[in-house]
Structures are given as structure tokens and as C-alpha cells.
């Protein structure tokens, strides 16, 4: 089991009062895509926050082991350096993840410099093109508040991918995008996995996306991981009543990506 990239053991977390996620355990192999599916309030976004550990969420039980190290034991500076190219995040509202009044290229340089990575304008430009932003070089000369919400989202997604993280966390990142862009993002995520062997943990309420992307699917309800298994197992022989209901409710949009 030591070749697991991420191992979550009996994890519970809260914002001070009641635990929002309770006793969650699962593991991820390098290059694996796991989708956590659940309704809003199921704790799936909190799970992502617990893994990246950059909010004021408190871990109340269990631990998170990344590449063999318990994240809680890392000094905060080392932990911070892991963010970006070790663990990357496409947040729920990616557009709000940049400082709104600083030029984007400066912000890109700032985060890259923290990882001793070069600022490769052409590479970022190419990345932006693949998710539907032509003319990236000019766009990056702007400040986020000068750009539309959709543009900011794409830039933030590109920023997360740019680091080529070993584990990429996606928190409902596609829910705010239109169907075409969401499709492009999904395609791009799959390509990244293909080329870099990136593991992707994607949190969504959309079982359709999970079916398209995931190797394994976890179902969350009321803070607990109630079912976990391969895509085939979840869709062919779900054990849980709740999972069956979710599958029944998946809209039939076969033609769409």
C-alpha cells in the first residue's frame, strides 16, 4: 500500500462546532481519477478543503498521508511549498482565487517563483488556448477585475494546471462553466493525466461527469463516505439505496460530452 499517492485515514473535520465530515477513508494511486459525488451539504467540498488545508477548517480526527508523509506533521513552510506543484486546486469559484487588483502575469510569476519554476509565457498561453482563451499574452497583462468572470475562471484553471501537480483537486470547478467549456476542461484534465500521470480528485454533484472521467467513485452523504468503488461497480451494482437513487436521477444527456 506504500505506493499510494494519497491515503485518507478516518478523517473528521469541523469549523469548531460539529464535525462536517466524519470518519472518511480512501486511497488514491498515482494517475488515478477519483470523483466524490454528493449533494450540497454532503461535505464533499469540506473534504477538499481538509486535503489542501489552507482554510480555517480543523482536522478533528484521522490523518491525510500524501506521498507517504502525514501532512499534519509537516512544518507550515514546507506544507505551503507543497501547494501548487504537489497538490493543486481548482476551487469552487476559480475566478475569485486571484488578487483582483494585481496584474495576472505578476501573480503568475509570484506563485511560480515560490516553487523555483520559470515563468514560461508561451506554455501558459498554450494552456489558455486549449481551454478557450485566445490571446492569453494580452489577457495576462490585465488585472482580474478588468476581465469577465468566465475569463478569470479559465485563467485560474490554467494556473492550477500550469504547475503540473501530482494531485489536482477540483472542487465543482466545472459547475460554473458553460457546457462546452466544461467539456473542454474535462478533456484537458484527462489529457494532463495522460501526459503527466496526474492524480485527480474531483468533487461534483454531477454523476455524469464522474462516469465520464473517474476510475473510482465515492458517494458522500451527511459527511460520511457511504460508498466507494470502481465506476463499473457503482453504476452496475450499487450497494446503497441512496446511490441507486442518485444514478436513477442522472439526466440522460448521452450525446453531450
Amino acid at each position: 500500500m506504500s505506493d499510494l499517492l494519497l491515503k485518507i485515514n478516518g478523517l473528521s473535520a469541523s469549523y469548531g462546532d460539529e464535525d462536517i465530515i466524519k470518519d472518511v477513508s480512501f486511497g488514491m494511486l498515482p494517475g488515478e481519477i477519483v470523483c466524490i459525488v454528493g449533494e450540497s451539504g454532503s461535505g464533499k467540498s469540506t473534504l477538499v478543503k481538509a486535503i489542501h488545508g489552507m482554510s480555517d477548517l480543523q482536522i478533528t480526527g484521522g490523518n491525510i498521508v500524501f506521498e507517504g508523509t502525514d501532512l499534519a506533521t509537516l512544518p507550515s513552510k514546507v506544507r505551503r511549498k507543497l501547494m501548487g506543484n504537489g497538490i493543486g486546486l481548482i476551487p469552487q469559484d476559480p475566478g475569485a482565487s486571484f488578487n483582483p487588483i494585481r496584474k495576472l502575469d505578476v501573480q503568475f510569476k509570484e506563485s511560480l517563483a515560490g516553487h523555483d519554476m520559470p515563468y514560461d509565457e508561451d506554455k501558459i498561453d498554450k494552456m489558455l488556448k486549449t481551454i478557450g482563451l485566445a490571446d492569453g499574452k494580452t489577457v495576462l497583462k490585465n488585472r482580474p477585475f478588468e476581465l469577465s468572470g468566465g475569463m478569470n475562471q479559465r485563467i485560474a484553471i490554467a494556473a492550477a494546471m500550469m504547475f503540473e501537480p501530482r494531485l489536482l483537486l477540483c472542487d465543482e470547478a466545472t459547475s460554473a462553466l458553460d457546457v462546452t467549456t466544461a467539456g473542454a476542461v474535462v478533456e484537458e484534465l484527462l489529457k494532463i493525466r495522460e501526459s503527466n500521470g496526474t492524480s485527480i480528485l474531483l468533487v461534483t454533484h454531477h454523476l455524469g461527469i464522474a462516469k465520464k472521467m473517474a476510475d473510482n467513485i465515492g458517494i458522500m452523504k451527511n459527511g460520511r463516505l457511504i460508498e466507494y468503488g470502481s465506476v463499473d461497480k457503482i453504476f452496475e451494482s450499487p450497494e446503497n439505496e441512496y446511490t441507486r437513487n442518485l444514478i436513477r436521477d442522472v439526466p440522460r444527456l448521452k450525446k453531450k460530452k
Binding site: M83, G84, N85, L89, D93, A96, S97, F98, E110, A159
Partner: peptide, 25 residues
Amino acid sequence: QEYVTGLRTRGVSEKDILIHNVFHN
């Protein structure tokens, strides 16, 4: 503000966040 979390998850150091972003803004 949300951007602070955003910068943290991109691995920007707390010092850079405080001086170049928070204080700047």
C-alpha cells in the same frame, strides 16, 4: 477575502501574501 485562500493553494508564501497582496490591497 477568497483570493487569500487562492494564493495559498498556489503555494505563495505567507510573507508574499501579506506584503504584496493583503497590505497592497
